[in-house]
Design a protein around this nucleic acid. Structure first.
Length: 206
DNA sequence: CGTTGGATTGGCT
DNA sequence: GCCAATCCAACGC
C-alpha cells in the first residue's frame, strides 16, 4: 500500500476514546476493503451504534469468550460476528485494551467498487438497487466481502486489507440519534440512544 | 451433551 | 406486519 493511502487512515488514537464519541465521529468516514486482486471496495459510513462495558446488549456483557475476545483487544481491531446462521456484522474496537467496547457499522453509502458490490449482493432473479447494497450491517459485510476471518484483525497493520480512512466531518445539524436497532431484553439497553446516523442520507437502514 | 436464541434479512400475507 | 432461514456460541445439566 502506498504512503499516501496509509496517511489517509484514521490513527489508532481516533478509536482509543469513549465509544459514543467514536460512533458519532465515524459518520462521514470511509470503510475500505482491498480484495486479493487489488480491487478497492469502499463506502462512506452513514449509520453506527455504540456497544459499551456494562451494556446488557453487548456480546461481552457477561464475560470474555472466544467469540467476543477481539472486543478486549487494542482499539482499531475489527470484531466480526456471525449471526442468525447466515449473516456477518462488522465492528471496530474502541476504548483501550482490556476494556470490551466497539462500534457496529450499520450502513454505508457505496463509493468505490459498486459493480463488484452488485455482483456480490445479487440473488437469482434480483439485481439490488444501489441504495440497498450496504443498507444494513449484514448487507455491507456481504458487499465488502467481510467475514469472520477478519475478527481480531488489526486494521492499522501494514498492508491491511480492511481499514477506515478520513472522510468529511458531518456537522451536528445533519446528525440524528436514536435507540439501537434489534436490541431486546434489558430496558436500559433498549432505550439508550446510542445509534447515530446522517439524517438526510437515503443509505441508512430501516 | 442437548437446548436455545441471536446487534438480520428477504419473502410472503 | 410476520416469520423462516440456518449456524453455532453460550449455557445448563
Amino acid at each position: 500500500m502506498s504512503t499516501v493511502e496509509e496517511r489517509r487512515r484514521l490513527p489508532r488514537s481516533f478509536f482509543a476514546r469513549d465509544t459514543r464519541l467514536v460512533a458519532r465521529d465515524l459518520l462521514g468516514m470511509r470503510l475500505v476493503r482491498v480484495l486479493e486482486n487489488g480491487a478497492r471496495l469502499s463506502g462512506i459510513i452513514v449509520e453506527t451504534e455504540a456497544y459499551r462495558p456494562g451494556d446488557a446488549a453487548m456480546h461481552a456483557y457477561r464475560k470474555q469468550t472466544p467469540r467476543n475476545a477481539p472486543m478486549f483487544m487494542q482499539p482499531g481491531v475489527a470484531y466480526v460476528y456471525f449471526i442468525y446462521g447466515m449473516h456477518y456484522c462488522f465492528n471496530v474496537v474502541t476504548e483501550r485494551a482490556g476494556v470490551p467496547a466497539a462500534v457496529l457499522v450499520r450502513a454505508l453509502e457505496p463509493a468505490e467498487g459498486l459493480a463488484i458490490m452488485r455482483s456480490r449482493r445479487a440473488r437469482p432473479d434480483h439485481a439490488p438497487a444501489d441504495r440497498d447494497l450496504c443498507r444494513g450491517p449484514a448487507r455491507l459485510c456481504q458487499a465488502l466481502a467481510i467475514d469472520r476471518t477478519f475478527s481480531g484483525y488489526d486494521m492499522l497493520q501494514a498492508g491491511s486489507r480492511l481499514f477506515i480512512e478520513h472522510g468529511r466531518r458531518i456537522p451536528d445539524e445533519r446528525v440524528r440519534v436514536s435507540s439501537r436497532i434489534g436490541v431486546t431484553g434489558d430496558e436500559v439497553a433498549r432505550s439508550v440512544e446510542w445509534r447515530w446516523l446522517i439524517a438526510d442520507s437515503p443509505f441508512v437502514s430501516r
